[in-house]
């Protein structure tokens, strides 16, 4: 899945870099030739570079959003770092230099808030719900949440310690069913890996993960998923040295165009 996408991300990033450089060059010529309007407004316009720490599930969307932002604001660079939200909070509290933090759940954002590292009240910018993922051929003919509790089904879920596992647990409780998984993985990508490789008959993952997997996996919606909706908050980190650019980037995610990128990828609106 992510391996599948990486070459494209690399090509896109490279293209964005080249375009960015070209933008820089033409801007300088403009400044040297005649007084362009952009020259006079550089003080309030975002410029320079920021680092964005974002939850792993935001990889595809944030890569697109950062490219769009850089294209719309020549002279800016958005560096992205993706990992599990808990890992990112650990890195931030250990002093990792970042300007923006986008978490996959409110719990990890609260942890950062407790550490006194957030500059503004976090803004909720997306939601994500669970969906049943099955291999493209759906070998065990899974059609509903109840099917997952059938004996003989090889089900893989997230461990309750990680956000997707916590969501799975609340769904189990509210639907009154007991799941007997063959494996409880530490990350949603590991669950997806077991499904796309055909090792598992079904897995519980986020809607967006199934979209990313393309035609290697099929998603099955189930009404009980409304019991666990994950909210994604974003904020500027208090140690940011470029708050103007950080705030501008956050605005680009919460505005209509940014929201469209997110909903296209399967995210819900908060």
């Amino acid at each position: 899945m992510s391996i599948h996408h990486r070459p494209w991300a690399t090509i896109l990033t490279a293209t964005a870099l080249i375009l960015g450089l070209a933008g820089c060059a033409s801007g300088t010529v403009d400044n040297a030739g005649n007084q362009s309007p952009s020259g006079s407004s550089t003080t309030s316009e975002p410029s320079g570079e920021i680092t964005v720490f974002a939850a792993a599930s935001l990889k595809t969307t944030f890569t697109t959003l950062a490219e769009k932002f850089e294209a719309a604001h020549p002279g800016t660079t958005i560096k992205l770092s993706f990992a599990g939200s808990a890992d990112l909070v650990t890195q931030l509290t250990a002093g990792a230099p970042a300007d923006v933090f986008a978490s996959a759940d409110t719990k990890n954002m609260s942890k950062l808030q407790d550490a006194g590292l957030i500059a503004d009240t976090p803004i909720d910018f997306a939601t994500n719900t669970l969906e049943i993922a099955v291999p493209a051929s759906n070998p065990a003919a899974v059609n509903s949440l109840a099917d997952l509790a059938e004996p003989g089904i090889k089900l893989v879920i997230c461990a309750p310690q990680v956000p997707c596992g916590a969501a799975t647990k609340s769904i189990e409780e509210s639907a009154g069913i007991t799941l007997a998984p063959v494996s409880e993985e530490s990350s949603v990508t590991d669950v997806m890996g077991k499904v796309t490789s055909g090792e598992a008959d079904a897995g519980l993952v986020y809607v967006t993960d199934i979209k990313t997997a393309g035609d290697k996996a099929k998603g099955i919606k189930f009404p009980e998923s409304s019991a666990a909706v994950n909210t994604y908050p974003i904020t500027t980190v208090s140690t940011s040295k470029n708050k103007v650019l950080a705030d501008a980037f956050i605005t680009s995610i919460t505005d209509t165009e940014g929201q469209k990128v997110l909903t296209d990828a399967g995210f819900g609106t908060p």
Partner: peptide, 26 residues
């Protein structure tokens, strides 16, 4: 982690348990 998965008492060895605990209980 890649081949066997992670289930308590069946496949979750000590390194996998550490990796999982790190998420919630440092």
């Amino acid at each position: 982690l890649t081949f066997a998965g992670s289930l308590e008492g069946v496949t979750r060895t000590l390194p996998l348990e550490i990796y999982l605990q790190r998420e919630s209980d440092a």
